[in-house]
Simulated scan of single mutants.
Amino acid sequence: MTMLGKVAIVTGGGTGLGAAVALGLAARGANVLVNYSRSSADAEATAAACRALGVDAAAARGDVGDDADCRALVADAVARWGRLDILINNAGITKMVGHDDLDGLSAEDFLSIYRINVVGAFQMIRAAAPAMAASGSQGVVVNVASIAGIMAIGSSVAYAASKAALINMTKSLARALGPGLRINAVCPGFIGTRWFADPMGEAGLAKMIAQQEQSTPLAHAGTAEDIAHTVLFLAGSESGNITGESIITDAGAHLGPRTGPPRKPAPDQ
């Protein structure tokens, strides 16, 4: 229970990675506000699962692209638990468009993606910073970026550019808001969640999982729990000397395809 008594907000926390992070925070003793914009039932289920771990948790609707909603989410957490310690900026959107399809993206597409992926994260940090300072301990922010922001790959040019902006903003705000806040980012590669399953279908998801297992240096297709472990490390005291960093967690996919045969890890002794 290394986060016992802490209070966390997880944006986009109802499903996938957000839900895995919310549950991980709860397992460590934190009370959790599970934010959602559309998936009310999923967020309520995640909050209930957190409560089953012995902490308090609640679901709260809010559009992170709306500054008033961001401030309301922070006010809700403080009103419920009297403090705010951890912010996980997980909410994100995309549009699936090939990078060579220049006519597949409009200015409106860019603006809507940046509104959530970049401006939303900024607004949540701006709203959370005073509450974290009032809590009397160092606040922690983890931004969920993407390998797309480093490698210029992913679902679309607009998405990749937004995640590159989020990585840059992580560095800028870590410098500006320290030592009161520590701000880091995690950069996932493929994750076998609804983020991929919804647009690609189950067959497409299964194909991607197989490709990841065949090609990545670790011969592994990432899961929400894999990424959550890194998020929780950055949110916890174990990373207390780290700020402004962006940690890639993609089974080594950014290194290129595996060149040797797969090797099974030695069994635990």
Rank of each mutant, 00 (worst) to 15 (best):
I125K: 02
A19Q: 14
F190H: 03
A158S: 10
I242C: 03
K95W: 09
D101G: 10
L218G: 02
L4D: 12
M124K: 11
M169F: 06
A47M: 00
A77T: 13
T216Q: 05
A19R: 15
T46V: 04
I125F: 03
D250C: 11
C50V: 09
L23N: 04
A203H: 14
S172F: 09
L232P: 10
A57K: 05
A79K: 11
M124L: 13
G192D: 12
C50Y: 07
A152Y: 11
G260V: 13
S237I: 12
L84G: 03
S39F: 04
D85P: 04
R38M: 08
A145Q: 10
Y36P: 09
T243I: 00
F196T: 12
V34K: 03
R83L: 01
P267D: 08
I227T: 11
G98M: 14
L205P: 08
A47G: 01
I93W: 08
G18A: 07
V55L: 02
Y114S: 08
G256H: 05
G92L: 01
I247M: 07
K207R: 15
K95Q: 12
A75E: 12
G236R: 04
G18W: 06
S146K: 02
V78C: 07
I150C: 02
G192R: 02
G240D: 13
K171C: 14
A60F: 07
G252C: 01
F190G: 01
A253M: 15
V32P: 07
P217A: 01
D226C: 06
G24Q: 08
V55I: 12
G252L: 00
G54E: 03
L23Y: 01
L255K: 07
D100Q: 13
L105T: 11
V10I: 11
D268H: 14
M132D: 02
A49R: 13
A221E: 00
G154N: 00
R71I: 01
H229N: 13
V157F: 06
R263G: 02
G120H: 06
N143H: 05
A203E: 15
T15Q: 14
A26M: 02
R126V: 07
I242V: 13
G13Q: 08
G14K: 07
L111K: 13
T243C: 00
L84F: 05
L33R: 00
E245C: 13
M1E: 11
I153E: 11
F233C: 00
G204W: 05
S40V: 15
S246R: 04
S137K: 06
L177R: 07
A60P: 10
L218A: 11
Q211S: 14
Q269C: 09
A253W: 13
I183W: 08
S237W: 11
